[in-house]
């Protein structure tokens, strides 16, 4: 079912909520090692797609393949242990625990000893430059630090694929830069990313390929320049405006 280099493949993936079709037969393939961006207006079905792929929603049709294996309808924790990590639009640290405890809560099937796990926590916190607050309660962290902690927790899974839902939302430009650097660094080491982001500057610098969603459908795919010139994409964002200088809104 999967090509040699395809890490994630959805075929006609459909999710309905009553009369609303949030994802309408979405077929999409993500190659191993790429950074795939997903853009689209609010309500276009991007987060629903994440939730359906990662097992939070039961699909009404279609299939999901991860690493060549059909994983349609798998429970989220099972997918996570297989190496499919994700973050959420709204940051959700376990606020009554310390940063280190947040990381240690992550459950894997890799047979690491307790010491090895603690060592790995130290490495990741150091990589993300938040090791100095390892024993602080998560509730006291800034929004940006919470984003980094969320990424750190996902890295505890040693994921092959990470799906990030708006990683740069609500963070200052300096931290945004840091988060992007971390994503690039991890990508250079072989981790594949699928990123939802509204900030087109981030998308332009981050994504190798961009998929565009509109009204639950996957309407276009290509590099950033290509999709920003695409007529359907312009219509989706600007309601039919076709002015020459218009770009997909930043």
């Amino acid at each position: 079912m999967s090509d040699g280099d395809t890490i994630l493949k959805t075929t006609d993936l459909t999710k309905r909520f009553g009369a609303l079709t949030a994802n309408d037969e979405i077929s999409l393939a993500v190659e191993r090692g790429e950074i795939r961006g997903i853009i689209g207006p609010n309500g276009s079905g991007k987060t629903t797609f994440f939730n359906t792929v990662t097992g939070f929603y039961e699909p009404d049709g279609g299939s999901v393949h991860f690493n060549g294996e059909e994983v349609t309808g798998w429970e989220p924790h099972r997918l996570a242990r297989r190496g499919l990590g994700r973050t959420f639009q709204i940051v959700s640290p376990f606020k009554n625990m310390t940063v280190r405890q947040n990381m240690l809560a992550v459950q894997t099937d890799d047979g690491r000893s307790r010491e090895e796990k603690r060592e790995r926590v130290g490495e990741i916190l150091e990589f993300l430059e938040i090791d100095h607050i390892a024993d602080n309660e998560a509730r006291g962290m800034s929004g940006g630090q919470q984003k980094l902690l969320e990424l750190g927790r996902v890295l505890m899974l040693d994921p092959e694929l990470v799906m990030l839902d708006e990683p740069a939302a609500g963070v200052n430009p300096a931290l945004e830069e840091r988060i992007m650097d971390h994503i690039h660094e991890l990508n250079d080491e072989g981790t594949t990313f699928v990123v939802i982001e509204h900030d087109m500057h981030v998308m332009k610098t981050l994504a190798d390929t961009v998929s565009v969603f509109d009204s639950g459908r996957h309407i276009a795919q290509g590099d950033f320049e290509e999709v920003s010139q695409n007529e359907d994409v312009r219509k989706a964002y600007l309601g039919g405006t076709t002015a020459e200088d218009d770009e997909v809104p930043v």
Binding site: F56, S92, N96, M97, Q101, L104, R114
Partner: peptide, 24 residues
Amino acid sequence: HEFGYRVKALRDDQDAAESLGIDT
């Protein structure tokens, strides 16, 4: 124990806990 961290994790945010490999 890490078991306790997982219990507190599911109390704080069950979806986030599931996404981190915890069989809630």
